[in-house]
Amino acid sequence: MIEVRDIYKSFGKVKALNGVSATIKKGEVVVIIGPSGSGKSTFLRCLNSLEKIDRGTIIIDNIPLTASKTNIHKVREEIGMVFQQFNLFPHLTVLRNITLAQIKVRKRSQEEAERIARDLLLKVGIPEKADNYPFQLSGGQQQRVAIARALAMQPKIMLFDEPTSALDPEMIGEVLDVMKNLAKEGMTMAVVSHEMGFAREVASRVIFMDEGKIVEEGTPERLFEHPREERTRTFLSKVLK
């Protein structure tokens, strides 16, 4: 479903991505781990073209991202993204946050958009907050709204950029639960995260990145129990207890 061939991305002198290739098949849950600065977030953000690659190809669902004919907005409709800082629209209610893009981008009717929104709020566990504003919600609740907002577009792929890193510890669980359910339902997911427990439970594959390159990848059991590379071992020893 997602094919990434040899991509490079630099920010000025900093080489964030230094020749990265990967494939993500439909229904896979890929968790990307690595130290800060390894390029994991940049990699994710290239998948929906929030960052443009300098070299290489990315093909999403048979559509090349970088081709001039490609309508990037249409591609983005099929890819949902959840951010570390939630990025909810503060001037809109929770309900409107979820229905806005449905109506303006997917061109759904107000009634249909609201029905979908309320179903999703129920699914993420906070149906009663529909008419609240983001600032009235806790961090965990806001992130769940963000997930609902992305899901409302009925994307084929969901990208998660460190979704729990900005949350207080007691709220991480509620967000991970939503993500686990999503994985069980068969959603194709690419998740950048430090939550190793989550990776062990639902990831079909774990990718370890460092200094802009993929160092190694494999099933969570294989990678965590028997890491092949020295760098992987060093990183895991610092992160796993």
């Binding site: 929030l50 907005h73 983005r76 993204m81 990025n87 577009m153």
Partner: peptide, 21 residues
């Protein structure tokens, strides 16, 4: 915050929609 631009773009909004809404 740049996140607002990111979120709007990732939802598939074009430039005009992002600015207006």
């Amino acid at each position: 915050p740049t996140g607002q631009f990111d979120a709007a773009k990732s939802l598939g909004m074009n430039y005009l929609q992002m600015m207006i809404y």
